[in-house]
Amino acid sequence: MPILYGGEIAQFLDVCAVDEALDFIEWLRGQSRPKIDLESCTHLHTALFQLIVAMQPEINSLPGNPFLFRCLSEAARIYPPAQKCLVSESVSRGGDS
């Protein structure tokens, strides 16, 4: 299972493909304050990425892949409801990388 759902937090592991999208959105809909952990994610399919951008779960940690990192921080910055501090931090980190 590339996505491990444990209570409020979903952990993305390695390659997360398009097949996960349906489970993921069901899970997101069922949570009041969903959190996701992307640290171990190496490939994130656009469908999953899009759900993260649209539903704005709290991101506990960003992936190590520089491109995914950049995209997520970029998208999160545009849809920023409660994640201002995460964003400013990630942008400065993005600048360094």
């Binding site: 993921f24 899009q50 951008v53 649209a54 998208a75």
Partner: peptide
């Protein structure tokens, strides 16, 4: 430089089609 955004607005969460 890169920008990723929605093409139009996002639907409410219960209407979003993941595919």
């Amino acid at each position: 430089a890169l920008h990723v955004g929605a093409n139009g607005d996002w639907l409410p969460s219960d209407l979003i089609d993941p595919y």
